[in-house]
Design a binder for these strands. Structure first.
Length: 577
RNA sequence: GCGCCCGUAGCUCAGCUGGAUAGAGUACCAGACUACGAAUCUGGGAGUCGGGGGUUCGAAUCCCUCCGGGCGCGCCA
């Protein structure tokens, strides 16, 4: 609808230019049209006459008058008016609103979705937590946001794939393996202590049990004196322990350990996500990039382009030339590649697949990496604009007004699974989505669990269930439904509801353009409000036949919009509660 | 110290590329079912949009500055 009105305005302005009332350079790039906030100011409004006034040399109201006079006549508008300092307000014709009912029912689950016209191919990478334990409440936000974003972009007509990047190499992987191995040895009654800095969580013991199941005793080392070490420094202890573990087990058995542990961790994460209703289309492993030699190639290409130099024994990337604060190391003095190096290779891989836009959803604690990653893309000859890095602020949990902090290493965190089990999947997802991503999120457990009106999830779901309940009444009472005359819908509460429904396609477009799933959540609450208000004001089943049929169609279309919207944010639409 | 995010009603937050009288929810107060689900609805009070400058017809929105909170600033992952 917004686009239709923009189109009318553009036509009018062109005509004014043709009539030489306006000069061509006064034409705005885009015509701003917005849904009016207040009734009495029409359904849509534009301030275009005011913004063009300067360039055109006309007074705003005078220009508005000329634009209004040259609007092509259309049947979906009842009238237009000029108001205030120079706004043009558009009033929709009633039949344009009542006609919407038929449209919604016909389109059904397609209503609101864009027809693929300017569709882009988009890759959304999200969560991508390191495979060293269960997902916690912080990851949950990225999961809810990323999944809703992908669904939203699909609804807006784009082709979207989702991906999880698994960092399955490096030191943290080694520490994890050693942690599980020591727990495994303890299961064999060997006296070994798990050192500080190793993963302490209960799930490590679980993983050790599975390792025992997979490998039985083949990884046992009886000489515990070699392993039970404690150096002055935590990191030094771990480094030495890793070195000895690799030596004791030998390359093959260590790889076996690694594969078992990795598979277990990935499976744990995958099942946590599945439990949350999130499935990635693809799981991409760092070891793949490394094995194929992509990292070496990426580094070599940067070197050939002259963006690398040696200093202090390490190899540096000149990211400061591309706006980063300083240069970054890609190869350490000891010859090891940094994580940044393999991340470059991975992102180049994504950029060179068949996508128009590559989106990363990152936690706020990674925002410092945005500049260097974009720099690396630019230096490698890719357009950094195609890499969209969205930052989701951190989430903390509040229970009994107390903040619960999260740390994977210490094992003292609230897992995503616990959260879901406690609040339910729908409430958890809705709460995560309800804040825009740049806003810090304090997740109030008590509120999310409450099954009352102050919990917005239930408010929206209740509207859906209520409509389904009315439909059941129709069947139980054996009421006939015939094709309805929707022009019978003329009460304010009915027209308000229709106005709200008519905005759904615009809301999807807007939310998708801005990468803001929360707009959908807020919109759904508004739909529910309008519905509940209508429901309390008007009777549905006790009307005479024609009106009853019209109203039943109306609430069916409301139900459809609620269901479509809830689907976008990944929340269920219950038929009863 | 530098960078990013945030600061809007008692509390939790919306406010779309600057637009007309700043909006919801919650809490509080007062009402509404012998009638389709009261997990609902109706009404009420409540804000110098963190402070101060600037840009302009017009600023919660853009720019500068200060204050306050979060996060990040490794040859860690």
């Amino acid at each position: 609808m917004k686009a239709k009105i923009q189109n009318l305005l553009a036509q009018s302005i062109e005509r004014l230019v043709a009539l030489e009332e306006l000069s061509a350079d006064a034409i705005p790039k885009t015509v701003p049209v917005e849904a009016s906030r207040r009734s009495g100011q029409g359904d849509y409004a534009t301030g275009v006459a005011m913004s063009m006034a300067r360039a055109s040399g006309m007074k705003p109201r005078e220009l508005a008058d000329r634009i209004q006079a040259n609007l092509p006549p259309v049947d979906f508008l009842e009238r237009t008016e000029i108001a205030g300092p120079g706004f043009i307000n558009f009033f929709l014709a009633k039949q344009a609103l009542t006609g919407l009912v038929g449209e919604v029912l016909e389109c059904a689950d397609k209503f609101g979705r864009a027809t693929p016209g300017s569709a882009s191919r988009i890759l959304v990478e999200f969560v991508s937590a390191n495979p060293n334990g269960p997902l916690h409440v912080g990851h949950g936000r990225g999961a809810a946001f990323g999944d809703a974003l992908a669904r939203l972009l699909r609804a807006a007509g784009h082709h979207v794939d989702t991906e999880y990047y698994v960092n399955d190499l490096g030191r943290q992987m080694d520490i994890l393996c050693v942690s599980v191995w020591i727990r495994y040895l303890q299961l064999h009654d060997l006296k070994v202590k798990l050192p500080d800095g190793a993963y302490q969580g209960e799930y490590i013991i679980e993983s050790a049990r599975k390792l025992e199941h997979e490998e039985s005793a083949s990884l046992v080392c009886a000489d515990t004196a070699q392993i039970d070490i404690q150096l002055d420094e935590k990191d030094a202890t771990l480094t030495e322990l890793i070195r000895r573990t690799k030596k004791i087990l030998g390359e093959d058995r260590f790889l076996q350990l690694r594969d078992d542990v990795l598979a277990d961790m990935v499976e744990m994460i995958r099942s946590d996500l599945a439990h949350f209703g999130v499935q990635h289309d693809r799981w991409f492993f760092e070891s793949q990039v490394s094995k194929l030699g992509d990292v070496d190639r990426a580094i070599k290409a940067l070197r050939e382009r002259g963006f690398l130099y040696e200093a202090d024994g390490a190899t540096w990337f000149r990211s400061s030339e591309f706006g980063d604060e300083k240069d970054r190391v890609v190869v350490r003095a000891n010859g090891d590649l940094t994580y940044f190096a393999s991340d470059i290779a991975y992102h180049l891989d994504k950029m060179r697949r068949d996508y128009d836009i590559v989106i990363n959803v990152w936690g706020a604690d990674h925002h410092g990496y945005i500049a260097r990653m974009k720099a690396a893309m630019a230096a490698s000859g890719e357009n950094p604009e195609r890499l969209e890095i969205l930052v989701v602020q951190l989430a903390t949990l509040i229970r009994d007004s107390v903040k619960i902090s999260m740390s994977t290493r210490s094992g003292e965190f609230v897992s995503l699974k616990e959260l879901i089990d406690e609040t339910g999947r729908d409430a958890a997802r809705f709460f995560y989505i309800l804040r825009k991503s740049e806003q810090h999120l304090d997740f109030d457990l008590e509120l999310a669990k409450r099954q009352t009106g102050d919990n917005p999830v239930y408010y929206v779901q209740y509207a859906h269930a209520r409509i389904c309940s009315v439909a059941r009444q129709v069947r139980e009472r054996g009421l006939k439904r015939t094709s309805a005359d929707h022009s019978l819908l003329k009460q304010d509460s009915e027209l308000d509801l229709l106005r709200r429904l008519s905005r759904f396609p615009d809301v999807i477009q807007s939310a998708a353009n801005d990468y803001e799933p929360h707009q959908i959540a807020y919109y759904l609450r508004d739909v529910a409000t309008d519905f509940h208000s209508f429901y309390n004001k008007e009777r549905i089943l006790d009307c005479e036949d024609a009106l009853r049929c019209a109203r039943l169609d109306l609430i069916d279309s409301v139900r459809q919009v609620l269901a479509n919207g809830l689907d976008i944010i990944g929340v269920s639409a219950p038929t009863s509660m």
